[in-house]
Every structure is written in structure tokens, then in C-alpha cells.
Nucleic acid binder design. Structure first.
Lengths: 300, 300
DNA sequence: GCGCGTCGCTAATTCGTATTAGTGGTTAAA
DNA sequence: TTTAACCACTAATACGAATTAGCGACGCGC
């Protein structure tokens, strides 16, 4: 019942040419002159037989499969990442490449090895290893997105600000927190306080501590912002009266919270597309990402 | 600068045997008799050279790579899925396989083709194609998880229940809604009403329509439940006084919401492990998943 | 002293593609 | 008339592992 898939050789036989010619026709080899008649015969035979290049054989010959692996590591799997992945995938697909996303913390090496990808994008390393990327597009992008967040608070008149961070931040989150601090410095604000978000009671205590000391909280992610809002509700604090809150990433939940959460919306898809071109060593695209902007709702 | 990776032939040369012998040693070929001395020499040479089998070459020879692809399709990427993936990955890793997760809706075929996986787990098809799985474990599992959800409401005395579903459900969501309806029937409740969750105003209208007609809402996912809670807040309805709400999946947001959301917790990791063994045609494991249970919070 | 089986290993082939080097024939340039 | 270039292809090989068939040496039974 298992039908053997057609190979290059089958197509060659069916169209009366050599396997090499089939390869040239199928890949539009630029340095080869093949008559239009032959091309048609080959293509027709390929279509008839349902021929499709065996990706593994091709990978062996080419030294790597036409796959790019995105290693997400421990990054928050939020809507920003989702959009980013969509953009990556779209651009890679257009170039004939497939994207595979590895979300694992553990078996990373194994899965990456197993497919022999053309390129591996290690998202966490991209950020945390200094100078990993020459074109600052996306990495510096993060800095500028958080700058947008803080600038928005400043324009509303806030000067004393706290940064909501995970109670046990990984390197990535620490780096992002650093961006926020540098943004505050660049804008002439006093150094922001840190508001660690952990278990429910710990978060409540942390929020209570900041009430009256700061007037606004900038959260590194929407998820953290919602935890702060929950704690504020528990503490009986009003928002934005006692404390304004701004999130980051504009998740679906942000709009659904009551009061709805103000958040930063980033054109992650375009950044994804740009990274795709870099990963494949294609010339950079000229489309600019849409400007990062704040979606103002009721918490600021 | 680019160091060529060691091949089987290199190891053979270094240890004074043939490449075939190297292969036998490295794979512990059962029908071969190789002296312990030779084995040691080969293993030592392999270690010295840092030899690791080239996965693509192996895949070509074996007909498929040691990769299993999980095609998530359009399923909600919630915590349940995350746990499920963790379990899958763990079990596959133990068997020497890698898991790759494809989240794309579009380039599915391309990415799957590009790695030549040993098996493809099409999660959406697993559910929506009737009888796709013989062992009912996970599919019927879903039915029983929703049964748990409805049974919980029934025990609290609710009889008139609405199911919160996406305004534009895909096949998967329709199937899950069906499970809820069948659960209600099995428990002797009247047929549940449908509460479509879409845009903010549409959801508000839908919630208003059900107020007074039903006493509880069972949502297919936590995300839908949160949308319902937001609409209730806007409608000035109290929870659980006017309407009790129960979610599904026990997401991180469920606990953080105010009021905190009651939800159904599923031992997805174990189901993932079981599916892994089936995908590789290994004998079924005997570990039973933890019982599905309701995490009761303030909304019921 | 001949056949047979086992041990310990090797030679050769296979998987399916991409590419390099080359080939016979025609045409244009010198 | 020779040389060179070009056209339209083909033969052969490499990629790196896994596997099948088989080979020489040795031991054992009769």
C-alpha cells in the first residue's frame, strides 16, 4: 500500500533525460542552458509523477536542511512573540525555508541537531550576549520600545516610577529592566524603583510598599501588569488614581481587564521579517516597522 | 576557521577498523559480535574526535529523521498545551527523538516536509477526524474533562448553563462545545445555551442576553471565561451572585483575575507522554494521568 | 582430515539529491 | 582554416551513515 515516492531518477527516465538535467530544470540552475522543449518535458513528467525533491537527501548534499530553527528559550510566550514568529515564518517561507520553533528549555541541543538547520536563531542569546547583533534593529529596538513606555508616563507628568519585574528574573528580563532604567535616565527621571512580582502575597506586599512612593508602574510584560492590578485591587488602591499602570505587549487580556490596561503595542511581525532576512544572509529589506505606540486605556 | 566535523570514516581510521565496525559499535548492533577491546578503541577514538553521527545522513539512510513534529494548528496556545508539549518532549527525548512544534497555520506542509520527520502528530486532526485514535486516552479525555467541568456546576445546584464559545469557532472548538453539550445531557441537565464571545460589545450583548436565563457559564477556555468576566463587570453583574463562571485549563491569569477564576486543571503532561509513546509505536506506559479536577476560586 | 559453525570483522551498496567536469556538435571570430 | 566560444546536455561523484553479504581464521565433531 505504501507508494514509493518518485525520485529524480524516475523523472529522468520518464522524460528521457539524465538526472542531472532534471535537477537543473527543477532548480532553475542559472549557469545551465536547457532548451525550453526539454524544460517542458521534464516539468510535465515531474508533475505527472508528483515528484518533489526529497528534503533529506537535499539536506545531505547541501550540508544543511532548508530549515531555520528559532530557539525561544525562556522568553515570555506572549502575543509579541507570536507576532514575531508569524513575521519570521512568512519571510522564510517566501524564500523556500521552513521555520521550526523550539520552546524547550531542556532538549534544545537534541532537537536542533536532529534537523540540521541552515541557521539557528537563539533569541535569548541574541539579547543577552552583548554585541551579538551588528544591525541594532531588533535588540536596540527593545530599548526603544521601553523608552516609548517610559516617555508616555513622563508626558502624563509622572516622575517617580516603579518597574514591575519577575521576582526571579532571568537574564532576558534583567536586560529589559535595564533598558527601562536607562530610558528613565535618558528622560531625566529619578532612578525607578523595582517592584518584584512573585506569589500573590509577595506581590501584594511589594505593591503596598510602593503606594505613595511612586505614582506609576511600568511593567515589563502585560502579564506582570495584570498581577500588579490584581494586587492593587486586593489592597483597595484605585487605578490610576493611586497608581497608574502601563503594560507591554498589548496582550488580549490587557483589554479585558477591568479597568482595561494601557499597554505598548509593537510591530513585532515586521521585526520578525527583518530577522528572517538576516538569518538567511539576504539583503536587508527596506520596509520599516510601524512605530511603536501606546494603546491608552483606563489604567493611566 | 570552520572545523569539519568528524565522520564515521575519521573514527574508523583513528581506531584502525572499518567504518562498518564503527557504526556497529556506536549503535550497539545486536546481531554483531565485536570484541570488547575493539569496542573500547572505537569508543575512545570517537570521544577523542568528538564524533557524533550526522543526523541528516542518518535520516537519509533510515528514511526519516529522528524527529517528531507536533502540528498544533489553530489550537489555543494555553498552559494546557504547554504542559502537553512538555510531556511529549520529555518522553520523546528519552527515546532519542526530538520534538519540533509547528505553530503555523500556513506553511505547515513546507516545514513538515523539510525535516522528514519520523511521525507527525496533527493535533487538530486528532480531535476533529472521528476515530483518528483508537486508544481513547486523550481524545475521550477531553470529553471527560469537560464532563468534570459541568458536573462541578451541577453539584453546586446549577441547572441552566451557558457554554462560552468563540464567536467564530473552528472545528476544534465546535467539537469541544459538543462535548459540553453531551456532558449536560449525560448529567440530566437541560440543553445548554450558547454564549458567543467576540468583540467587546458583542460579548457584552451576549452576556446581557443570558443574565437571568442561566445561572452559570462554562467556558471552553480560560481566555473565554475572562472575556465573560470583563463583560459582566461592564454590565454591572455580580459574580457568582448573578452568574457563576468556570474556565478550563487553569491558566496563570485565572488565579490573578479579580475575582479569581475557578477553572479545570488537567494533567496534560502525562497525556503528552502517552501520546509520545504511541507516536513512536512503543508499548503503552502504565502511568495514569492525575485525575482532572476543579480548582475552585471565587467565581463559582 | 574434512565439513560445519562461530567469531570478529570488512567491502560494497544504498538512500536521493546537487554539482563538477566534460562531451560532441554547431557557429562566430581571426 | 584554425581557434574559440557556446549550446544542450550527460557521467560521475560526493554528502555520511546503516546494513547486507561475505571472508578468513579458528575450534569442534566425526
Amino acid at each position: 500500500m505504501k507508494v514509493r515516492r518518485a525520485t529524480m531518477r524516475d523523472v529522468a527516465r520518464a522524460s528521457g533525460v539524465s538526472p542531472a538535467t532534471v535537477s537543473f530544470v527543477m532548480n532553475d540552475a542559472p549557469d545551465q542552458t536547457i532548451s525550453e522543449a526539454t524544460r517542458d518535458r521534464v516539468r510535465q513528467a515531474a508533475a505527472d509523477l508528483g515528484y518533489r525533491a526529497h528534503p533529506i537527501a537535499r539536506a545531505l548534499r547541501e550540508g544543511a536542511s532548508r530549515v531555520v530553527v528559532l530557539d525561544v528559550g525562556g522568553l515570555p510566550r506572549d502575543r509579541v512573540l507570536e507576532r514575531f514568529v508569524d513575521g519570521l515564518e512568512e519571510e522564510l517561507g517566501a524564500a523556500g525555508y521552513a521555520l521550526l520553533v523550539s520552546y524547550s528549555r531542556r532538549s534544545r541541543r537534541a532537537s536542533i541537531d536532529a534537523v540540521g538547520p541552515r541557521a539557528v536563531i537563539d533569541l535569548a542569546a541574541l539579547y543577552t550576549r552583548p554585541g551579538a547583533i551588528a544591525d541594532g534593529g531588533w535588540v536596540d529596538g527593545m530599548a526603544s520600545h521601553y523608552l516609548t513606555q517610559i516617555e508616555f508616563l513622563r508626558q502624563l507628568g509622572h516622575r517617580d516610577v516603579a518597574v514591575a519585574v519577575p521576582a526571579r528574573p532571568d537574564r532576558f528580563m534583567r536586560l529589559m529592566a535595564d533598558y527601562v532604567r536607562r530610558a528613565a535616565e535618558a528622560l531625566g527621571l529619578p532612578e525607578p524603583a523595582t517592584l518584584p512580582v512573585g506569589g500573590e502575597t509577595a506581590t501584594l506586599a511589594a505593591v503596598r510598599e510602593q503606594l505613595g512612593r511612586v505614582t506609576a508602574v511600568a511593567a515589563l510584560t502585560d502579564s506582570l501588569a495584570l498581577a500588579v492590578l490584581a494586587a492593587m485591587a486586593d489592597a483597595g488602591a484605585s487605578c490610576p488614581g493611586d497608581l497608574a499602570v502601563i503594560g507591554w505587549g498589548d496582550s488580549a487580556e490587557a483589554a479585558r481587564w477591568r479597568p482595561p490596561l494601557t499597554s505598548v503595542r509593537v510591530d513585532a511581525a515586521t521585526y520578525g521579517r527583518r530577522l528572517a532576512r538576516r538569518a538567511l544572509d539576504l539583503p536587508a529589506d527596506d520596509t520599516k516597522p510601524a512605530a511603536t505606540r501606546v494603546i491608552r486605556r483606563a489604567t493611566t
